[in-house]
Amino acid sequence: MTPAIELHGVDYAYDGGPPVLRDACLTVEEGEFVAIAGPNGGGKTTLLRILLGLARPAAGTALLFGEPAHRFSRRATLGYLAQRSRLGTDAPATVREVVSAGRLAAGGLLGPLRAGDKAIVARAIADVGLEEKADAPLATLSGGQQQRAFIAKALAAEPSLLVLDEPTAGVDPGAQESLARLLERLHRERQVTVLYVSHEFGAVENVVRRLVLVRGGIVFDGPPSDLPGAWHDPSHVHA
């Protein structure tokens, strides 16, 4: 089977600056749940941008489902949760309106949403447990519930790859655990490939079998239990 993600010997630097990534190699098979962690400035976001085809590596190749990532032809099947600061969480929108935006690429840009797309949106809302809040304004929800709404938005694309960038940032510890359990369940039930990117991985440590640490390159790739003791402490990951 073609891997969902393949990076081979990827180098990247911003505008003649020092390299942010060197010789990064990563293969993620379809159906895996992988956490990508590392310190701020370590290259996680750059890695993410390259594997989503939003940035071209200076050297090496990036493939999405076997196609060059920057020319990937089935983008409508990518579910992506951007960092919270980049989301319009203060827009006067309901949960349903936010989740409906996830059908934009798959459902077409023009005119109102079709009945079949509305059903997919309703299922995504139910999957994250927000049925009762479906028509509530986003601004009246807690931080954790808002993140669930945006996860539902990503699910509304019926994704083959779900990429979550810092999904637990700004969310209290209780809600972080709840989000981790939700993601584990969605991964299992929908059999979707999940990439969970965060500067710390405590919230998903117990639900992922594979952890990738990025620090100017990929410095660790394996089960969280194999992580060297010093790196296990999130404060070392931050360093």
């Binding site: 939003l54 992506y80 935006a101 990503a154 990429v163």
Partner: peptide, 9 residues
């Protein structure tokens, strides 16, 4: 609502 998400999609 989500310019980056729309771009990725």
């Amino acid at each position: 609502l989500d310019e980056e998400g729309a771009h990725v999609a």
